[in-house]
């Protein structure tokens, strides 16, 4: 994986520090041209991996990259699915079954519940695969070396203890997309345990890793220990803890953790992109 990965929170009004800033960003990036301008800056600065959700606007970005293969030579997407709000809104609006029906275009769903037929595990796996395929459609023909399961889904399944789901996910990503499965979480130690118990070997895990222990469940010492001793490939996110840590201090801390393979960050100005890149290179 590249050392530096570019994130997409800033493009979709996601700012974990301030809702006001989030709204301003969401106005600025309301069309794909605005997003491409910033991606171009990152790409031209040598940051060629873009970790993004499966929001509809990303589909437009995918089209642009696909249509300009020379301009975007070596550009990689790391999709993160599912785009939670899409599903949460659907569940609230139409219930769990209604939402499922909507996103699997009805057919498998009807097969499942027709005449009170009992749900087999393979049916649920089939539904999962269909949902993954639907989410991945926009990336057809593009480089997607790592495909992530997004944190609300991961942490929900983790808490429930349904490790088999992670194993099925990992297997399908490898088999169908020839990509590495990735997991995003706020609960790294617990996730490492459950993945190990379910034979998901040397997983790629993206988690909040920062100097103040923000959203690092289990505590900063446990994280440092696990990062140093356990077998997995770590990507650090939230390294600035939503702006609570000054950039130099933040980067110095994360780069000091020897086994953190990559760092994902989001920014919307050339200055911030270049500054963060320079800091990561300096401390690595």
């Amino acid at each position: 994986m590249d050392r530096i990965i570019f994130g997409d929170n800033q493009f979709f009004g996601v700012n974990h520090m301030s809702e006001e800033k989030a709204r301003a960003q969401s106005m600025r990036f309301k069309d794909s041209q605005a997003i491409m301008k910033v991606l171009d800056i990152a790409y031209d600065a040598g940051i060629k991996t873009f970790m993004c959700t499966t929001h509809d606007r990303i589909a437009e970005i995918c089209d642009i990259v696909r249509d300009n293969p020379d301009r975007y030579d070596g550009f990689k997407f790391y999709p993160c699915m599912p785009y939670a709000h899409k599903y949460a809104n659907a569940v609230t609006e139409e219930g769990a079954l209604g939402a499922l029906k909507k996103f699997t275009s009805g057919s498998i769903f009807l097969t499942l519940i027709k005449g009170g037929k009992a749900v087999a595990q393979k049916d649920m796996i089939t539904v999962m695969k269909l949902l993954i395929d639907a989410e991945m459609k926009m990336f057809e023909g593009l480089k997607t070396d790592v495909i992530f399961l997004q944190n609300v889904t991961v942490d929900l399944i983790l808490g429930l203890g349904f490790g088999q789901v992670f194993a099925e996910y990992a297997g399908y990503i490898r088999e169908r997309y020839h990509a590495e499965p990735g997991f995003i979480t706020m609960n790294l130690p617990l996730l490492l345990d459950i993945l190990e118990d379910n034979d998901v070997d040397n997983p790629i895990i993206c988690s909040s890793i920062n100097k103040i222990g923000f959203r690092m469940c289990g505590g900063i010492e446990k994280y440092e220990k696990d990062i140093s001793e356990r077998k997995f490939r770590a990507i650090a996110m939230s390294i600035l803890a939503s702006g609570a840590i000054a950039p130099e201090e933040a980067v110095s801390y994360v780069c000091g953790l020897k086994n953190v393979e990559s760092i994902v960050f989001g920014a919307s100005s050339k200055a911030h992109i270049l500054q963060t890149k320079e800091l990561i290179e300096r401390f690595s």
Binding site: G219, A241, A244
Partner: peptide, 10 residues
């Protein structure tokens, strides 16, 4: 970040 105590599971 400064107002939220950590939890065991998020």
């Amino acid at each position: 970040t400064e107002l939220t105590p950590p939890v065991w599971f998020y």
